[in-house]
Design a protein around this nucleic acid. Structure first.
Lengths: 122, 122
DNA sequence: TTCTGTTGACGACATTTGTAGTCGATCCTA
DNA sequence: TAGGATCGACTACAAATGTCGTCAACAGAA
């Protein structure tokens, strides 16, 4: 089983993926916009992520700096595969069809998807 | 917030989406392949799904028949949108790219995606 | 040097989730 | 008709999750 990251923990991971090597208080600061957590909550989540092996720590003086141990892309692949398997019988096209139906695809998405398909067919 | 369905509950939903109007014991039977749950567990999950508003019941004699109150497609859309928002900045193309990278796309998926893109561009 | 604020370690506690068990009513079988 | 099977309602309980609190150690400010 790959590491299980909960929704709350994922918010932390996203910060650290974007800027690896932050300390707890800087992460808290980066999260003030999105979340209304106390530093205590954030530290608990960080500890759990380290326990789970999703983050690694480096000591800097008496504090820790956190870096991802699981790459963003790795996690994206796992999560996307899980969704496709659990809800779409392993098929990608119906997933995209539902997405397009639910919220449309941007021009950018359409262009990128075409490029991707072109690459896959050659 | 749309109804939150847990992984275990989703297994139940999938059976009922496939064949609406089953009773608890028939659902249990349909699940014997995939899951190793007792009928008790299944009944608990059914109760919770009814409480959550994901299933509706009809009485048939002294038992209940279960039908979806949330359509499969509706749930698919919600789940797909959530994933895309939480992990892919709302973009569909990177999701498909990661999927392709993680497990490849079938010929069928590629053909369907092309058809879908064609439709979207016109 | 003393006070104050910050840090990680550890503890806490309600809610959700997974997985059953008990119980009284009822239906079916012998 | 009597005893077991089955039904839904209710209860149980550990693990995971979300959200903080306490505490001892330490670092910087006054």
């Amino acid at each position: 089983m790959s590491v299980q990251i909960t929704p709350a923990e994922l918010e932390i991971m996203k910060i650290i993926w974007a800027r690896p090597g932050l300390g707890a208080s800087e992460i808290a600061e980066a999260l003030t916009d999105q979340q209304d957590w106390t530093i205590k909550t954030i530290k608990t989540l960080l500890t759990r992520l380290v326990e789970k092996g999703a983050l690694a720590t480096t000591s800097e003086g008496r504090r820790f700096l956190y870096t991802p141990k699981i790459a963003r892309k790795t996690y994206q692949k796992t999560a996307a595969s899980q969704l496709v398997d659990r809800l779409f019988n392993g098929r990608a096209a119906p997933l995209v069809a539902q997405l397009a139906d639910a919220r449309g695809l941007s021009e950018e998405d359409i262009a990128e998807l075409e490029a991707l398909l072109g690459r896959l067919k050659s």
